[in-house]
Design a protein around this nucleic acid. Structure first.
Lengths: 223, 223
DNA sequence: CCACCCGTGGTACCCAGGTACGAGGCCGGG
DNA sequence: CCCGGCCTCGTACCTGGGTACCACGGGTGG
């Protein structure tokens, strides 16, 4: 600790002004952080990023007009060394993953502890990447182990899949149609549709096609 | 949060005794940590894990005989809820990813700060996952920006497809809908449907879903 | 006890997508 | 020259899949 007293200049981009001031208060409590700009939308964020040149940008995903993902893409396109941390209420949100692909260096849930936030900003500012541990955990669950519900926890089920849904998720990734899913799991097609629909909603995906893509990108299929 | 004074029982697995005692000193300085076992090799680690059932295992990768990865695999195979943090001097991806695939919940470099170590242990003990920011960064580098070849020559089994069809094929694998395909290639949706239909017919596939699967299996998209 | 979530099932609606068929334009080879 | 492949576009049809409801039994926890 006691890093050198380098000021880190931060920009906030979120459509909720209340949340912005909340973050501002948290951040300015740290003496090496300065909030140098606030943006209420994607377009504004892009413009401000180019003019103010903040060290780190906290970017919300859901914003009216240009969303955080697209804003991230454009900002990193203009200045690839931009350091952007994606903020979202939902974990395992396809938009958020899109944000990482768009060039973001970090990913945080909005209910993160202040210490997590400051730690993430410092990590990103120093050139590293930071992903919230809860999301990291989700990613790991999808990696090697099937994780048979071992220890299901409190808050992590905000956007997370239930055990059954994860089974269906994997089967979709194998390319099964709804009738085939029904046959495999001894369910009615109605039930299958319920599961599929909830999976798509929770993960923020459009199609089963994107389910397949996500599954392969996370490496949990494909021998 | 609210990590009440619950004792976290920790096992160390590393072939270097010196390093073990170093870690032990760091850990026992925390009043909620107890080092309950030390293993000098993989086999010993597996045996001790089964007998003393530690809450968290700090596992070195490089060990004589059974290495840390294999030990992790066997321990998690026996008890999937085991919480293992991989330790290594090198941040080579194979170690990291191998360990994580083997079921590890965390990954740390040995030059980590004591605070990082204790934070990681607490995160893992409480059911979350923790990966050193440097490794996280590597993961993101792999996750994002990996669509190098839209124009590959050989494209193994796709000989039946024409050039245009191959383009469309790859775009489908990215998850584009028909309207999106039309927009990207400046075509009408009718034309897109023609192409898609012929692609499915030639490759003997049912859905665009199976197109995605085939593309990933052939390694034509993604990482 | 009640509230909540999960898994199961249903109905109804709508549209994206897949199928079938045709047709015109372009280009290269026989 | 004509033939055939490729690319383009259209129209019409039908099914699978996604969405929006609602409902019920079982388990769990406050």
């Amino acid at each position: 600790m006691t890093q050198t007293r380098m000021q880190t200049r931060i920009m906030l981009a979120d459509d909720q002004a209340l949340l912005r001031t909340g973050f501002r208060m948290v951040l300015e409590a740290e003496d090496d952080f300065t909030v140098v700009a606030e943006a209420g939308g994607g377009a504004e964020a892009i413009a401000l990023a180019a003019s103010v040149l903040p060290d780190v940008i906290l970017m919300d995903v859901r914003m009216p007009g240009i969303d955080g993902i697209e804003a991230t893409r454009q900002i990193t396109a203009a200045r690839p060394d931009s350091k952007i941390i994606i903020l979202t209420t939902f974990d395992l949100d396809e938009y958020a993953f899109g944000g990482l692909r768009a060039g973001a260096r970090g990913f945080l849930l909005k209910d993160a502890q202040p210490s997590e936030l400051t730690a993430a900003i410092r990590a990103v500012a120093s050139g590293d990447a930071s992903v919230s541990s809860r999301v990291t955990r989700r990613m790991l669950e999808l990696f090697g182990s099937k994780l048979p519900a071992a220890d299901d926890e409190d808050a992590s089920r905000l956007g997370a899949l239930t055990e059954r849904e994860r089974e269906v998720f994997l089967a979709i990734a194998e390319g099964l149609s709804n009738p085939e899913l029904a046959e495999r799991f001894f369910l009615s097609e109605s039930t299958v549709k319920s599961h599929v629909g909830r999976i798509l909603a929770k993960l923020g995906l459009r199609d089963r096609v994107h389910v397949v893509i996500l599954a392969y990108r996370l490496g949990l299929v494909g021998r």
